[in-house]
């Protein structure tokens, strides 16, 4: 089973990297870009789990290791069963 987990800074936390990317895009003339938030993507391959177990374990992994819950939030999707 393949899972994609997206970790990014919470809305309440300033993201200077995202702002820098936005400024670069503005320099190139893409003024339509109102905001950029930068994050990390993790692709996990899980085995020996049914969907229900996976749905339990993925947020656990994200919360305990992949994201720092003080500053980051995460979302995830199962790519292939």
């Amino acid at each position: 089973m393949k899972v994609r987990i997206l970790v990014s800074l919470k809305e309440s936390v300033l993201d200077p990297q995202g702002q820098t990317v936005r400024n670069a895009l503005h320099t190139l003339g893409y003024h339509q870009v109102k905001d950029v938030r930068q994050g990390k993507v993790f692709e996990l391959e899980l085995e020996g789990l049914n969907r229900q177990d996976a749905e339990k374990i993925i947020p656990e992994i994200s919360d305990r290791v992949l994201a720092n819950p003080i500053i980051e939030k995460f979302s995830w999707e199962i790519m292939e069963a």
Partner: peptide, 16 residues
């Protein structure tokens, strides 16, 4: 901080 022995977290320096 990561181990939870102190509260809070570190972000990248403001000037990157």
């Amino acid at each position: 901080l990561e181990a939870g022995l102190l509260p809070g977290a570190m972000l990248r320096n403001k000037n990157l």
